Amino acid sequence: MRASVPFGHATPDTVGFAHRERRCNAVVTRTLYRMLLSAQATAATHHRYIIEPGDLPITQGLQENIDRFTGLAQRLDLDRILAQLATYRPLDRIPVTETKARFPDIVGGLTVALARTFTLIDPEMTHPRPAHWDGWKCHDPEPGTHILSRIYGGAVASAASIEPHVQFPA
């Protein structure tokens, strides 16, 4: 039986795939949720009870990674993304349909950013192991904050010439 893949994507079965899938999903979903918290604050500042697409903090670097993902002609399942977001505390503002429609591409862009981050940190790595995931957490006041949460638009954007060779489940 084939392991389920993140957000409905199919990839080859490999040793440790399920572990990488869980880690990738956790990091990317947590980062999307934090982006939604930021968008919620922007909507509140504008006295709106809805989150518009323009409220999302899409940096130039993240937009480049979203463009890379869309160039792969992959589609992610919005329902699976929403189901994973449902495990977090509910937002005070409601994302409009147009905002939700951007989630699959944002998740894809975050996944590309994650793969590129691993490539930047260790150019020789092709399959992240548990020690890689655990060893690259930021020294942040919030336990478990992963490096992607810090650089999904910063350092990754400055390395536009580096292509990921990490084999990820997305």
Rank of each mutant, 00 (worst) to 15 (best):
I81L: 01
T70M: 08
T45P: 00
S4C: 07
D122N: 15
A155T: 14
R102H: 07
C24M: 11
A43Q: 07
H132M: 09
V156F: 04
D79P: 00
P123Q: 03
I58H: 07
C138H: 08
V166H: 03
K100Q: 14
V156A: 05
L148V: 01
Q40K: 09
A18G: 09
H46N: 15
I94S: 09
Y152I: 05
L110V: 00
R80T: 11
A3F: 05
T45I: 07
L82R: 12
A26H: 13
E142K: 11
Y152F: 14
E21S: 15
I151R: 13
T42C: 12
A155R: 15
D79A: 10
D13G: 03
P141V: 10
D79E: 11
D77R: 06
T31I: 02
P90N: 06
N65D: 15
L36E: 00
T117A: 10
S158I: 04
A160R: 13
V27E: 06
D55H: 12
Y49P: 01
M125W: 01
E142C: 00
E21R: 15
I94N: 08
S4K: 10
H139K: 12
P104K: 04
W136V: 12
Y33S: 00
H19V: 10
V166N: 07
L56M: 13
R93S: 08
R34N: 15
I50N: 10
V96A: 11
P57L: 06
N25R: 14
P12I: 08
L37H: 08
L114S: 02
T117N: 07
W133S: 10
M1T: 12
I121F: 07
S161H: 13
L114Y: 04
G109L: 02
G154K: 12
F17S: 05
L91E: 00
A18V: 14
P95T: 02
K137L: 09
L76Y: 02
R80L: 15
R34E: 11
D105G: 06
C138L: 13
T29S: 09
S4D: 13
T45D: 14
D105A: 15
I94V: 15
F103M: 04
T97C: 07
L120V: 06
R22F: 09
I51A: 06
T87F: 02
V5D: 09
F118L: 04
Q63Y: 12
L62Q: 05
G16L: 00
I162N: 04
H139G: 09
T31N: 10
L82E: 14
E163F: 03
H47A: 11
R34H: 12
G154T: 11
D67K: 13
G61V: 05
T14P: 01
R102G: 03
L56T: 05
T87E: 08
Y88A: 03
A26D: 13
Q167G: 06
A3Y: 08
R102M: 15
D105N: 14
Y33T: 03
E142M: 11
S4I: 02
H146S: 05
P128T: 05
D77E: 12
G54M: 07
L148Q: 01
V27P: 00
Y49Q: 13
P141H: 11
